[in-house]
Amino acid sequence: MSEITVVTHNGNFHADDVFSIAVLKHVLPTFKLVRTRDKALIEGADFVIDVGGEYDPETNRFDHHQRGGAGERENGIPFSSFGLVWKKYGLALCDDNQAVADRVDSGLVSTIDAIDCGHVEGVSKGISLSQTISMFNPTWEEESNFDTCFDEAVEFAARMLIRFIASAHGSVNAKEIVAKAIESAEDARVIVLEKYTPWKKTVHILSSDALYMVYPSHSGQWILQTVPVEPGSFEDRKSLPKAWSGLSDEAFVDETGIDDAVFCHNGLFIAGTKSFESTMKLAAMALAE
C-alpha cells in the first residue's frame, strides 16, 4: 500500500493550515507531508490543505481561497481549511459526541477560521491562538527553515487540539452531572456534588433557587460555596453570614460550634469543614441567617 501524501502550501503558515495538519495527525496512522505550491504535486496528493483552490471533502480537497470561498456557518463565520477539515473529521475525533464537537468548533475552530478569513467581528482582542501559531514562523533575522518551523507548530497544535477536545468533553459531562444534582437535591437552595464539577453555567441556566453549592475539595475538605448572581460576578445570591468573615481554625469553631470547621473567606463566598455532615450544618446555618 502506497504512503498517503498530504500537501499544504509552503512558506509562511497560519493557524488554519497548522491545525488542519494537526487534525490529520490524529486521523491518519501515518502520512508524508509535502509543503509546496507545485500544481502537479497538488493534483497527485491524497489530501490537499489550504491550497489548490478547491473544496471537495469526497476527494479530500480542503481549500477556501477560491472565488466564493467554501461556505460559512449559520452565524456568518466563513470556513477556512481548519473548519473544513473539522467539518469532516471533528465528530469522529470527539467520539461521535456532537455536543463536544460543536463546543470545539465554537470555542476553537470557528475563531481560527474567523481570524484567517478576516471575519473579526466578535473575536476577542489580545494575543490569540492564531497569533501564537504565527510566532512559530522564522523572523526576518532568523535563518530557520520554514518546513522545520511548520512541523514544530503542528506538534504544538496537535497537543492543543487534544486538550481542547478533553476540555469540551469535561464541560459536556459536567453539565449532565450538575443537572442531575439539581434535580435530586433535597433542598433546591443547596446543591450537593459528590465530586468537584464545574457548575456555575449549568446552575444559572437550570436553577434560580440555588444559593449554595456543597462539594469535596482536592485537599480533602468539604466546601460550601455561594452561587453568584451570574457567572463571573462577585455578587452572590446569598452571602455567608458576616460573623464568619475571615475566621479559621479555633476562631471559626468557636463561632459556629462545629468541631471540624476550618475556614471562611473574607469575601463570604466560600467556607470549609473536614466533613460532609459539618458542611451541610454550615449550609443550614447560612440559610437561616
Rank of each mutant, 00 (worst) to 15 (best):
K201E: 04
A15F: 05
D260H: 04
V262H: 13
F252P: 01
A179V: 05
A153T: 02
G257P: 07
S219D: 11
F82W: 06
D46R: 07
D50I: 11
D95L: 01
S239W: 05
A181L: 09
S80W: 12
I223N: 03
A99E: 13
C149T: 10
R73H: 13
T36M: 04
T202R: 04
V104D: 03
E250S: 11
P228E: 11
P198K: 10
P231E: 13
G11Q: 13
R103V: 05
G68K: 14
D236I: 06
G68A: 06
I112D: 01
A153W: 05
A261I: 02
F31K: 03
D113Q: 05
V6D: 02
D50A: 05
V120G: 09
A251N: 13
H119Y: 15
T59I: 08
A174I: 00
H65P: 03
L161K: 03
F276Q: 12
Q221V: 09
R163V: 10
E183L: 11
Y212P: 03
Y89M: 06
L224F: 07
F31H: 07
G232V: 03
F164C: 08
V178A: 06
T273W: 03
F252S: 01
D254E: 15
V6R: 04
D209T: 01
F136L: 07
V203I: 15
Y196R: 03
S124F: 08
A185V: 11
K200V: 12
D147K: 10
K175S: 09
N145H: 13
V100H: 00
T202V: 10
Y196K: 10
E235M: 07
D209Y: 06
S184M: 10
D46P: 00
F13V: 09
V154Q: 04
S219P: 01
P57A: 15
Y196F: 15
R35S: 05
Q225H: 12
I205P: 01
R159F: 15
